[in-house]
């Protein structure tokens, strides 16, 4: 456990000056900031629709969720998984990392958990910023109806679901970047995967949920509540979320075996 903890702290220490770390923070800031700015500067037009509180929150949050689930999230995950491993490939530091008196499993787990933590931070900030900028807009433009509905539950459920649905992509990309030191292979495969995911999810292919890249989109789509129920009452653990978690668990184990069997050049 101590091995894991110090490896994790070291992962943070090493990457705190890298783009992968800052992107987890800056990305939600920019996207939520831009959407809020858009709502602020176009407040007159938004107000014309006379949305009730819940509807306004729905419109407002889906702006971020839409781009996030479809495009930005897969690309951020690819880039981040690449970056966490590339820090060792680029500096040729796998050999020093694995010649420390720490067990290999802890080093590997710390790296994987660190990648998951970065994804969590990014998604958490998206939820937090959507929530707080909504209320900020309300303060700036008192005619908005953000105050009429509290989106805390639905936002945390939606983003929580999105997080779980992205674990599959993260695990695939993590392994690809663990094996290959170059940028193009994991990015190329990830890019093709994302496009495949987008297409299969949008044409509604029966088995699309088996492709990890389509899981975030499918997860958002399956977040509708049955009639007569409150909008928050949708299920988190739908088929595609389970598939994504399963990919996460299986590939995490596979990655460890790849690493232990591999000679470190």
């Amino acid at each position: 456990m101590r091995s894991f903890y110090i490896s994790f702290v070291s992962e943070f220490y090493k990457s705190r000056k890298t783009l992968a770390f800052w992107a987890a923070i800056v990305l939600p800031l920019i996207i939520c900031g831009l959407i809020a700015l858009g709502y602020y500067s176009n407040s007159a037009r938004v107000l014309k629709y006379n949305y009730p509180g819940m509807m306004l929150w729905f419109q407002y949050s889906s702006a971020a969720l839409g781009v996030m689930g479809m495009l930005i999230l897969p690309f951020y995950v690819m880039f981040m998984a690449f970056s966490v491993n590339n820090i060792e490939h680029k500096n040729d530091t796998w050999k020093t990392l694995f010649s420390q008196p720490l067990n290999k499993f802890s080093i590997y787990t710390a790296k994987y958990v660190y990648a998951v933590a970065l994804l969590f931070i990014c998604i958490f900030l998206f939820a937090l910023l959507t929530y707080s900028t909504g209320y900020l807009l309300q303060m700036l433009v008192p005619k908005f109806t953000f105050n009429d509905y509290n989106p805390a539950t639905i936002l945390s459920k939606l983003y929580g679901k999105l997080f779980l649905a992205s674990l599959g992509i993260l695990s695939v990309q993590f392994i690809l970047s663990l094996i290959w030191s170059d940028f193009l292979k994991p990015m190329g495969i990830g890019f093709i995967g994302t496009i495949m995911g987008m297409i299969t999810a949008s044409v509604g292919w029966k088995y699309a949920y088996l492709i990890p890249y389509s899981d975030p989109t499918l997860a958002l789509r399956s977040s509708t509540s049955p009639k007569n129920a409150t909008p928050e009452s949708f299920t988190i653990f739908t088929q595609e979320v389970w598939v994504s978690i399963a990919y996460g668990v299986v590939l995490f184990v596979v990655g460890y075996f790849i690493l232990t069997k591999r000679n470190i050049k």
Binding site: K14, K17, N91, T93, S99
Partner: peptide, 9 residues
């Protein structure tokens, strides 16, 4: 081992 492994950043 070989050339020193150092985090360049």
């Amino acid at each position: 081992v070989e050339q020193p492994a150092i985090y360049a950043h």
